[in-house]
Simulated assay, not measured.
Amino acid sequence: MSRARTPPRIASAGWAIPAAQRARFGAGDSVLARYASLLDAVEINSSFYRPHRRQTYARWAAAVPASFRFSVKLPRAITHEARLRRCGPLLDEFLEQCGGLGRKLGVLLLQLPPSLALDARSAAPFLARLRDRWDGDVACEPRHGSWFTPRAEALLLRHRIARVAADPAAHAGGDLPGGDPALAYRRWHGAPRMYYSDYGEAALQALAAALRADAARHRRSWIVFDNTAHGHAVANALRLQAVLRD
């Protein structure tokens, strides 16, 4: 996998295109193909709730340009039910499935439940197993305060795992990238109301400045808008794209 420095990837969580934005996108044989006419990345969250066949991932990969990349969220069976313990077969199954994306698989997203405190006895073996099977980028979004400590930072660095910079941040420092310095992965969920709130011009200008700073510090950076409930994610992604071009 290439480790060259690349421009920030701007993505939505999912590729649904709200009616108000459809005229801005190009033609395509599917919604995903139309989405990929303007944006160069997407985050797949549905994999958290249910498995997808390898052939489904391969079909998605075939619908987008060669430069397009997918981020894929690990299943809740691993993160929320098994809580990273004794889940090797589940991890292997997931990686076999999303491997259908081929070179277009850009990032694996590991979102942890708010109740999952750092326990190196379970986290370290899991991350080591993940790293044995996947050498590409991994972003972890922890939501328990114990993950925002020097001990947690050392664990993430050891396994080359980036810590997500989230908005709104669950804990002090949670709005800044951490862990693996090769990757900055930002997830903006909507604020003040998560998943619903639109981001205004001032917020997007500030985000653009942060992404420019990321480009100087990290080889790769992503921003994913997860404020999809009222369809703001795509509009925010397109506006940010325009701001970064100015």
Rank of each mutant, 00 (worst) to 15 (best):
A120M: 03
A162H: 05
V72S: 07
R187C: 05
L127W: 01
Q97S: 15
E153D: 15
R76K: 15
W188Q: 00
H189P: 00
A62F: 01
V64I: 04
L155P: 00
L118W: 09
P65G: 15
A58N: 03
K73I: 02
A154T: 11
T56Y: 01
W188S: 00
E96Q: 14
M194Y: 01
H159W: 13
F126I: 08
E81M: 07
A124N: 01
V138F: 08
A117R: 15
G99D: 02
A63M: 10
D175N: 13
C87K: 06
H159T: 04
L109I: 03
F70M: 05
E96C: 08
G179M: 03
H189G: 00
A166R: 05
P177N: 13
A61C: 10
V138D: 06
L176K: 15
K104T: 10
T79H: 06
C98E: 04
R103W: 01
S122G: 01
L95I: 04
A152V: 02
V72L: 04
P142L: 14
G190T: 09
K104W: 05
S122K: 09
G100R: 09
Q55V: 12
A58G: 08
F68L: 09
G102D: 03
D132K: 13
F94G: 10
D180Q: 02
T149C: 08
T149I: 03
L84E: 04
A61I: 11
F68N: 07
L130R: 02
P142R: 14
V72P: 00
P51E: 12
T56E: 11
Q97M: 08
R103Q: 14
L105G: 09
L105C: 07
V107R: 11
Q55E: 15
A128L: 03
R85H: 13
L112R: 09
G102R: 06
P181H: 13
G99P: 00
D180W: 13
R131H: 08
